[in-house]
């Protein structure tokens, strides 16, 4: 049996799944999936069909940054440019 991790366990972990990122950042799954497919959120995947793992601190900070840029009115291509420049 594999149980859903508690918030405490997630916050103590180095790596998180996309579902856990949803809980941490209060974002939509489809949004984070889109960011991942656009290459804006780097991840690690040991083998195909295994869970994608994201570095918790880096990815949460990046999602917050993307949200701020979106609030400032930047489009996704512009945000990608910003991420590349940084």
């Amino acid at each position: 049996m594999s149980r859903q991790r508690s918030m405490e366990a997630i916050l103590a972990s180095d790596y998180v799944s996309i579902g856990e990122l949803v809980r941490l950042t209060e974002s939509r799954y489809s949004t984070l999936k889109h960011y991942t497919e656009e290459g804006m959120l780097p991840y690690e995947q040991e083998e195909q069909n295994l869970t994608r793992r994201y570095k918790r601190e880096e990815t949460v900070a990046r999602i917050q940054q993307i949200k701020e840029w979106k609030a400032q009115g930047l489009s996704i291509p512009q945000i990608k440019e910003e991420l590349r420049a940084n």
């Binding site: 799944s17 949803v22 799954y29 994608r52």
Partner: peptide, 25 residues
């Protein structure tokens, strides 16, 4: 709304993504 979205979006992520789903899912 925050909890409604969090529960449903976690469920969507856990089942639509590759990998093992949690027992709660």
């Amino acid at each position: 709304p925050k909890y409604y979205t969090s529960i449903t979006e976690f469920l969507r992520a856990d089942i639509l993504e590759d990998g093992e789903a949690a027992d709660e899912t």
